[in-house]
Design a protein around this nucleic acid. Structure first.
Length: 582
DNA sequence: CGTATTTGACCGGCGC
DNA sequence: GCGCCGGTCAAATACG
């Protein structure tokens, strides 16, 4: 009974991963099926044959597209790595290293992970990847730099990928294991307890998988003022347990997502001990089903935050062991750590380790890195950060296993009514099992423009458009500022643009001009909340109009940076956008 | 009657 | 090895 979700997961993941294969199977079925001997069946046979031909043709087209995409992906990846290496050598040399860093590691990068999610067919991509060992060797050097990179993504493999990088920071490892992780993540089941129990009888591989899934999960803790028992985050939840956790008399409720039967996402809800009006919601896992825009925004933001966190963890460790852990005090609300109200501190070159939360509990949650998004503070001022940091420092003092960071999305007065809207309509996070690629969320979220979104989720679009935009703007602003203000982000954006633009144009001056232009656009969008444009979308839109092969490249870049605040509403060239926002 | 919630029991991880 | 604790299960209960 309890395993039914577990059993269904691999099946679904497999379907998602091998849509083309499914098509092939359908042919074979048509082939195998004996023709109906009856005249009545002849008509059906003809139609079936015609359909078969169509399917074959479509299959061939898809395969061609797949090959093309893979080739583009690999070439772009190589170019990206090359330029990344070139462009970062100087800043790295000039940048001071942390005492704790070994000096080999570059400044923390916001890794765009170009194309990493674009590996469409697991099998083919794996083969292709293995065949391209030469190119991978060429990338190895850069991959070393990647181990501290930050993956900005929203899909289910975020956490898996980054955490696995902790164990094996090499990019090739990530690439090769990508599909496995996607598979795991798509069908990732939380609980592994019973699975582990079962798997322990099945062999080492399964055990390892279970262990992996146990280690890789990241959590995103959202603190928000909310009078209702739970936050309205757009998902359907079913309560499956409640506990009085140590340190907080308020019971902690456990929910699992019921939108899809096998959805692995769960959340914990608990009142803050210090301020009962604050609801602490901890999300874990990634939805494996389409979400409403509201839920999408939440999922996207939390996923992005989780990815940042995990990336931060990867930077902070030597690559073999996890170094920090979350504290349940977060869940209890007794602590909060602000990296900075205007910066994701894990981007901060100076000290990702500052974000470590020592574990003061023996909870298994301590195994999970957690990032806290604080929606409760009155203003993203330094004073609030100081306050919380003081609180943090007064509470925690020991070592930790995973980095835990906190990001303030404060936008002034955060009433509970704004909680649902703060996650608003700026994100689009969709799992589409019908997509030919397994990078569900990315393909789904990125390839769709506003029109598509409206087509898919008209009611949600309307709903969210009606919703107040102030909080959304505030969130977008904060997140945008946080991301764009970091030199790492800028450098990597510049690098990515350079790599992509330079793929065909190779004009350094032009590239730099484009980079500058786009960064200005980013800044403009950040400062301008009038049009609710997220930085990434504007950037991407601008880029797509700037580069040749714009469609492919913008898709790739968007795939690399599916920020939660992306609002793929309009495509405005940088110049226009700039004028608009200035 | 079907579904959702409650709640005590159970399990596994971790620290001592 | 034992106990604590967080997390989950599942039977009992509540609800519409």
């Amino acid at each position: 009974m309890e395993e039914k979700g577990v059993d269904s997961i691999p099946h679904e993941a497999q379907e998602d991963r091998k849509v083309i294969g499914v098509r092939e199977e359908s042919h074979e079925q048509l082939k195998v099926k004996p023709d109906s001997p009856t005249k009545e069946g002849n008509g059906k046979l003809e139609s079936a044959k015609a359909e078969k031909v169509e399917v074959i043709e479509e299959n061939a087209r898809l395969k061609m597209m797949l090959d093309r995409i893979e080739k583009d992906y690999h070439s772009l990846q190589l170019q990206f790595f090359d330029i990344l290496k070139q462009d970062h050598q100087l800043p790295q040399k000039s940048a001071p290293h942390d005492d704790d860093d070994d000096g080999k590691e570059p400044d923390q990068l916001v890794s765009l992970c170009l194309g990493r999610r674009s590996s469409p067919s697991s099998d083919e991509s794996r083969k292709d990847d293995k065949q391209s060992t030469n190119s991978r060797k060429a990338r190895d050097q850069d991959d070393q730099d990647w181990k501290s990179s930050l993956t900005l993504g929203l899909d289910s493999k975020l956490s898996t990928e980054t955490v696995t990088n902790d164990h094996n920071p090499s990019s090739e490892n990530s690439v090769e294991e990508l599909n496995n992780k996607e598979e795991e993540a798509a069908g990732e089941t939380w609980p592994p307890r019973k699975i582990q129990r079962t798997m322990s009888n099945n062999g080492d591989d399964d055990v390892n998988v279970a262990k992996q899934s146990h280690v890789k999960r990241a959590r995103v803790c959202v603190r928000a003022r909310c009078d209702t028992p739970t936050m309205q985050d757009g998902c359907q939840w079913r309560k499956y347990g409640q506990k009085i956790a140590k340190g907080n008399p308020c019971p902690r409720a456990y929910f699992r997502c019921t939108v899809a039967p096998a959805c692995p996402v769960r959340k914990q809800v608990q009142r803050c001990l210090e301020d009962m009006s604050i609801l602490i919601t901890t999300y874990e896992g990634t939805h494996n089903h389409p979400l409403s825009v509201t839920a999408t925004a939440m999922a996207s933001t939390t996923s992005a935050a989780a990815s940042m966190l995990l990336s931060g963890s990867s930077t902070s460790q030597s690559g073999l062991t996890s170094t920090t852990t979350t504290s349940d005090h977060q869940l209890h609300g007794s602590s909060n750590l602000y990296g900075s109200s205007s910066n994701f501190s894990i981007y901060d070159n100076s000290r990702p380790k500052h974000l470590y939360f020592p574990n003061t509990t023996t909870s298994s949650s301590a195994l999970f890195p957690t990032i806290t998004l604080d929606l409760t503070t009155p203003s993203p001022s330094s004073s609030s950060s100081t306050h919380v940091n003081n609180k943090f420092s007064s509470i925690f003092h020991s070592s930790s296993r995973f980095p835990t960071s906190s990001v303030s999305f404060s936008s002034g007065d955060q009433s509970n009514s704004s909680l649902s809207t703060i996650w608003g309509n700026n994100g689009y996070h969709s799992f589409n099992s019908n997509l030919p690629y397994n990078n569900q969320t990315h393909v789904g979220s990125l390839s769709l423009g506003k029109q598509s979104q409206e087509h898919v989720y008209p009611t949600f679009m309307d709903k969210t458009q009606q919703a107040g935009t102030t909080s959304q703007q505030a969130l977008a602003e904060t997140l945008t500022k946080a991301i764009t203000s970091g030199p790492s982000f800028r450098s990597v954006v510049a690098t990515a643009i350079s790599s992509l633009v330079g793929a065909n144009q190779g004009n350094q001056g032009q590239r730099e001009a484009i980079v500058q232009n786009l960064l200005q656009t980013l800044a403009s969008n950040t400062l301008s909340s009038q049009d609710e444009k997220g930085c990434a979308s504007s950037y991407f839109n601008g880029f797509s109009t700037t580069s040749s092969n714009s469609q492919t490249r913008s898709s790739l870049i968007e795939a690399a940076l599916p920020l939660s605040i992306v609002n793929s509403s309009t495509s405005i060239p940088p110049s226009n956008n700039k004028e608009q926002n200035s």
